[in-house]
Design a protein around this nucleic acid. Structure first.
Lengths: 160, 160
DNA sequence: CTAAGAAAGTTGAAAGATTAACCACTGTAG
DNA sequence: CTACAGTGGTTAATCTTTCAACTTTCTTAG
């Protein structure tokens, strides 16, 4: 196809640049904005994501590892994160009978209440800053385009 | 349109969820992967972005403020960032004649060399993990969809 | 049954990010 | 020309993330 310069590097075309930049900018600006919208509730984006995952799980609990995988965090980071949330009374740790190395992170009453209170605001925020700015066609094609990328990237993580 | 539950919250439809999740996942996985690909060169994503901005600027220099804006960082964060890069010999600070409060961040020789060495690899990385996984139509529609979102978000930053 | 290796999770130190307070200078309203 | 609000940038304290080392338990090859 295109082989632009002396050293064989295929630089990005105008069009490619634009798409790339757009994705990059949205991705950062959006995270930033969502974080800001959660701030009044004393939660960070990370806190919220943990709460979502636990809320949607059987018995409001998840194994640390699974939670780490689901939220794309390292074990270490998750461990610290859960410690903070434990101190904030949002979750607690419980050990696992079937595997004595393992631990569950469990939503507390307060965690669940918090979730129920905050979720509507968060959804509103996601709508206002993202979803509602896109048409149905946009959403469909976004999903169709990005899914293979996500798959590719997931297949890569955890290599050397 | 849709008004799903008792309390009036417009939850996300299946389709909306999927698109949202896809964007979220790609955005995080991708950053992570790019970071990893830069690692062998001793650069972080942030370092690289600064280098790009300076490289593309008149005289390989930019005012701290402008650089902060361009890279969507806070002044404080940028200040720390530049200090680190200064210690690594990639940039240097120079004061500004016309406004004695101001400083320029200037690319050093070593910074420029680094940039020229690394850029091809970075582009390859962006292609491998993003651009080349999308068709031309995908790119076009991605750009078209995301640009208004980016504008919306940019208009919001720097409020209260 | 046991030893070696893998898996689950934690920990502490070092690096990076955020917050708020700060200093120096500029521009402008009176 | 002066006082005062705003700009440009840094700094110190604090919080979060990363990295590497470590403990405990589980699995499996022999």
């Amino acid at each position: 196809m295109s082989m632009d310069t002396e050293n064989g590097t295929r630089w990005l075309s105008e069009e490619e640049q634009r798409a790339w930049r757009a994705h990059l900018d949205v991705s950062r600006l959006l995270m930033h904005q969502l974080e800001r919208d959660l701030q009044p509730f004393g939660l960070t984006n990370n806190d919220y994501e943990i709460l979502v995952n636990l809320s949607e799980s059987e018995d409001h609990r998840m194994r640390m590892s699974d939670l780490a995988t689901a939220t794309l965090q390292s074990k270490s980071r998750l461990s610290h994160q859960i410690t903070r949330m434990e101190n904030a009374g949002l979750v607690r740790r419980e050990n696992c009978e079937s595997d004595r190395r393992g631990l569950y992170a469990v939503l507390t009453e307060h965690g669940w209440d918090t979730m129920r209170q905050v979720a509507p605001h968060h959804v509103a925020s996601v709508r206002e800053h993202f979803i509602d700015l896109l048409g149905e066609a946009d959403l469909k094609s976004l999903y169709a385009s990005l899914t293979p990328v996500a798959q590719h990237l997931r297949s890569l993580r955890g290599r050397a």
